[in-house]
Write a protein that binds this DNA or RNA. Structure first.
Lengths: 240, 240
DNA sequence: GGCCGGTCTTTGTGATCACATTTTTACGGT
DNA sequence: ACCGTAAAAATGTGATCACAAAGACCGGCC
């Protein structure tokens, strides 16, 4: 099976091939093009990218460095399958850093930005109502990162992106479960926006932290992780 | 001027050259082998490493990806000079993540480990008294990372390491100032250890957060950052 | 039928080369 | 002495090649 990697608006400028490869792979990861556990071989990626193996190799290495991909001791690289512990670790880090980003952003957003973000929230709700999980997740990202970018903290933004990158494949695979989360756990960003409008950055940060923790708790129970027995079918103990 | 990169205990096993290059550069960065602003060219590093340019290129790229090095648009890579804003950003992230690591580690350390860490603290105090800043900073790292490693959170550890990597060259250059910080700002890890012995992880985390914030406040005032006029010599406004 | 051994393929690694671009150096004019 | 320009050196990028190790596949043997 040959894979296709969208060019989107990345190759627009005259960036080095390696940088293009990096960005396209990054986006493909977020978009769920790859399945958790899938092996990504240098030559195959290079072919999909239409380049020599060299840029693909560098790009894969970079992704592996920021833990967006797992590297086997043999050097082979694959899309990570989050274990339960890893998922909870990512969540714990997010629960610290993303509220920080909100606090930093709080003092810098203007009313126009907040209006634009309110529109995104509305679109997200519409997508949820329409039963379109991929759109719903996309709007979720759009809202949060729209805010994080306003924090004026490039390093922080990069770290948060890396965390999402790692969580990406799992969320994509489980997108129906994620979207079907009960109201008390769902990402409803209304309260955050309201707090920001009041200039209450600290409160908005607390709200987001609670949101992340609620969703983590829900998914910890609802998701089936790597190496764990399927939830429903009882017993069925025999396995190779 | 030719640079020398210590092999230390890195090349011990049969790791890929690229991985060795990556680790040696990483360590060199922490050890202050490079000056902030210094340009690191692929071929020069390759020569210092005794390899072809290829492993050096990949290693430098990886370091640049995790922001341990800055990349010019031309592709040239250099040791970052922290601006005041960047320093404060790193500190803010540290103030969130390192206490988290302490909380996670609190439930997993045994008495033996705490004893070993107490010895490190004693060594650090001795180094400070002896006026040996490099040893003092090394012991500081040893203590904190000894703890962080116990958190059992590999991703968190990787992120924290990356933050220290970025802060490394600045701290090294300013090591006399760092070590000469007043008692109320200095890194005194006694209280943290005491809290951990009582099993009060939350308290230890608060203690560390306060420590980081105190040191940040002190250095923000004491350090001279990139692009800022020297503190003492007044006026001297004329410049090219 | 299941397990083992060998072969053939695929994979990652690293070196070398060619090329375009940037950066430095040196020179000549003002 | 200063500055702009051209020549020269150095630099990053990417392709290709050779090699060793890991993996897949197939046939034969117990």
């Amino acid at each position: 099976m040959t894979i296709t990697l969208s060019t989107h608006d990345i190759a627009a400028e005259e960036l080095p091939l390696e940088e293009q490869a990096y960005r396209r792979l990054r986006q493909a990861l977020v978009e769920g093009v790859f399945t958790p556990g899938e092996k990504l071989s240098i030559r195959r990626i290079a072919e999909a990218l239409g380049t020599s193996p060299m840029p693909a190799r560098t790009a894969l290495r970079r992704l592996a460095t920021e833990q967006a991909l797992d590297a086997l001791p043999s050097g082979t690289v694959l899309v990570p399958r989050l274990t339960r512990a890893a998922f909870q670790e990512v969540s714990a880090i997010r629960a610290e850093l993303e509220p920080l980003a909100i606090r930093l952003a709080a003092g810098r957003v203007d009313a126009g930005t907040l209006d634009a973000l309110a529109a995104v929230v509305a679109e997200q709700d519409a997508a949820r109502a329409a039963g379109r999980p991929e759109l719903c997740l996309q709007k979720d990202r759009e809202f949060l990162f729209g805010l994080y970018r306003r924090a004026g903290a490039p390093m922080l933004l990069g770290i948060i992106e890396a965390l999402w990158l790692r969580r990406g494949p799992l969320f994509w695979e489980a997108r129906w479960i994620v979207m079907g989360s009960p109201p008390e756990a769902a990402h409803r960003h209304g309260p955050i926006l309201a707090a920001l409008r009041r200039g209450a950055g600290e409160e908005a940060a607390r709200e987001l932290k609670a949101e992340i923790e609620r969703m983590t708790a829900f998914l910890s129970g609802a998701l089936q992780f790597e190496g764990e027995a399927p939830a429903r079918p009882r017993a069925m103990r025999a396995r190779a």
